[in-house]
């Protein structure tokens, strides 16, 4: 895939964010490529420590436990992701709502480690100056619909910062790349079923995320999507992929498009994204 034969390709895969994170980088100097890939994994690990719902001691878990009692100071990363989530909550009319964690716990998708249930919605989150966050009522926030994409963006920035010729980060299907003219990307529709072929191509849109609920039919946990408005699961007969400039946008928009289906054009345009869907 690389255009220069003297480049060394480094490709690694580690279990992170509850899935397999694959990071590829190429550079003439192998040591440089390895250091970059390691630093990119470190960036993903940092996001996991900040935003994991499963870890009771993550920054997000502490915010969920105490955010309604007093404003909590959070990291720049968590603040940025919550800010973007709030924006999406508004423009999607509440369809994208990170406070859906409470219902995901009820459905057995997420572990129960809080003494309270959420009693509000995304509009009960206030982002204060100085990197502080306050919940007006007890909330159970889950960033599962956005944090993976954010982690991919962070890792890509690290690879670019190391001056690699090309790089690709794939966190369980949410991916972004640079330096490849036309990487060979398949879309997994279901186990053993792939869409292999040209995807809508735009040189500026190098992030792709796919939301695909087919695994839910096999009884696997962790792949249920809820509509933020109805707080109910959405149809599992659709595979939605979104191409965008950043993976955080692509990741989040797949969730919105899965719910809205045909009515999603304005949001996609607003975020300069393209969606493509397949009925399963």
């Amino acid at each position: 895939m690389s255009s220069y034969s003297n480049l060394i390709n480094v490709s690694r895969c580690r279990p992170l964010l509850g899935t397999f994170v694959e990071i590829k980088g190429s550079h003439a100097d192998e040591t440089r490529a390895c250091e970059a890939v390691q630093a990119a994994f470190d960036a993903v690990s940092r996001v996991e420590r900040e935003m994991s719902f499963h870890a009771p001691d993550s920054e997000l878990s502490l915010l969920n436990a105490y955010g309604h009692l007093a404003p909590i100071h959070v990291s720049h990363n968590l603040y940025s992701v919550l800010k973007f989530s709030q924006n999406l909550f508004k423009v999607s009319g509440g369809v994208f709502d990170v406070s859906i964690g409470s219902e995901l716990v009820d459905y057995g998708e997420l572990p129960q480690h809080l003494p309270h249930r959420g009693t509000g919605t995304g509009q009960d989150i206030t982002l204060l100056e100085g990197g502080r966050v306050h919940y007006h009522v007890p909330l159970v926030v889950d960033l599962g619909g956005i944090a993976k994409g954010f982690a991919v963006d962070q890792a890509i920035e690290v690879l670019e910062g190391f001056g690699l010729n090309s790089g690709l980060v794939n966190a369980g299907g949410d991916l972004r790349y640079f330096g490849y003219k036309d990487p060979d990307i398949w879309v997994r529709l279901a186990p053993h079923q792939y869409h292999q072929g040209p995807l809508p191509y735009d040189p500026k849109k190098k992030a792709l995320a796919t939301s695909n609920l087919s695994q839910k039919r096999e009884g696997l946990a962790g792949c249920l999507h809820l509509d933020g408005l109805s707080r109910k699961p959405v149809s599992d007969t659709l595979s939605v992929s979104v191409l965008s400039e950043t993976c955080m946008v692509a990741d989040a928009l797949t969730k919105i498009v899965t719910v809205l289906q045909d009515g999603s054009h304005s949001i996609l345009k607003q975020f300069n994204a393209i969606a493509f869907m397949t009925r399963l």
Binding site: W186, R188, T210
Partner: peptide, 14 residues
Amino acid sequence: NQDIQNISGATLSS
């Protein structure tokens, strides 16, 4: 890096 595809799709659990 031979025949390695980049897969987007349903998240695989680790």
